[in-house]
Design a protein around this nucleic acid. Structure first.
Length: 147
DNA sequence: ATTCTGACA
DNA sequence: TGTCAGAA
């Protein structure tokens, strides 16, 4: 079966590898630092035994995150710890938000205004509710209505 | 030309 | 962490 576009992109990103030189110059992290972080077990190159370090896109993101944290004054240990918490948070947020949203209605594409409805089923504890998340001229807010 | 490891005026 | 050497 012919893969869909997003699936192809996913595979492309999955297979992208970037050398230590590119990562270093692009992100402003020295090769010395990258090797040290690896030694500490914080990052891992793709090909363990080839002798030359190639990083996955996911690892590059992690490196960029740690770099940001360091720039903000965190220690390396704290930066790594924060990265794990950030990953856990976004994983939960994505799963929750991704499944809960029924539809996104665009109010004003140029201004970024829109409306989103959460799909809440009725239960013993509460009636069926419509919860609307809205971004408009009043900022971000929610509206709750009974069905 | 790049990257690797190991060492430290 | 930087930097330099000597090898791959």
């Amino acid at each position: 079966m012919e893969p869909r576009r997003d699936e192809r992109l996913r595979q492309l990103f999955q297979n992208l590898e970037i050398g230590i030189g590119g990562v270093s110059s692009s992100l402003g992290v020295s090769q010395r630092q990258l090797r040290y972080w690896e030694q500490k077990g914080y990052i891992k190159p793709i090909d363990e035994k080839s002798g030359v370090r190639h990083y996955s896109l996911a690892t590059v993101y992690l490196i960029a995150f740690i770099k940001d944290q360091l720039d903000k004054g965190y220690t390396l240990d704290a930066a790594v710890k924060n990265s794990k918490e950030a990953r856990a948070r976004s994983r939960i947020a994505r799963e929750l938000i991704g499944s809960a949203f029924d539809d996104i209605e665009i109010i004003d594409a140029d201004k970024g205004y829109g409306k989103i409805e959460l799909d809440l089923k009725e239960s013993e504890n509460h009636p069926a509710l419509r919860i609307l998340g809205i971004i408009d001229e009043n900022g971000r807010h929610f509206e709750v209505k009974e069905k």
